[in-house]
């Protein structure tokens, strides 16, 4: 699987209800060293309920400027949350009979929505 299999994918709950789109992937560098960097590990998916456009990184912090771009983007992306990768039940293959059409990500029942902001 590569990152673009997940980016823009529709996110479904276990019962098939759509909750949004994957707008970004959150990676952590905590693996064994590979060259000069630690190997990245997929920590979770940033899911935006209303739009699959980019959030321009505003999900990472609580920056409110410049007006009016930041408030506008925050409005479009309100309700954006982070799901941890272990809460993803499965990512059906493109030829999956249950999920024809565009890529989807199916979440585990009882998954948790986390704040997408990065805290230091």
């Amino acid at each position: 699987m590569i990152a673009s299999d997940l980016l823009d994918a529709r996110v479904l709950e276990a019962d098939g209800q759509a909750v949004g789109w994957v707008v970004d992937l959150r990676l952590v560098l905590d693996g064994t060293t590979d060259g000069i960097l630690a190997r990245p590990r997929l920590h979770g998916l940033v899911v935006s309920p209303r739009t699959r456009t980019s959030f321009l990184g505003f999900e990472r912090s609580d920056v409110r400027s410049p007006w009016p771009i930041a408030p506008l983007l925050r409005r479009w992306h309100r309700g954006t949350f982070l799901v941890h990768w272990p809460d993803v039940a499965r990512v059906p293959e493109p030829d999956d009979a249950d999920h024809p059409g565009p890529a989807v990500v199916v979440l585990r029942p009882g998954y948790l929505r986390y704040d997408a902001t990065l805290h230091r």
Partner: peptide
């Protein structure tokens, strides 16, 4: 647009983020 957004982000800019007048 992206430059304007980044110039406001303390993660990149530290205390050099755009001031109110500049914004």
């Amino acid at each position: 647009l992206p430059i304007l957004v980044v110039a406001n982000d303390p993660e990149y800019m530290g205390d050099q983020v755009n001031g109110r007048a500049m914004n």
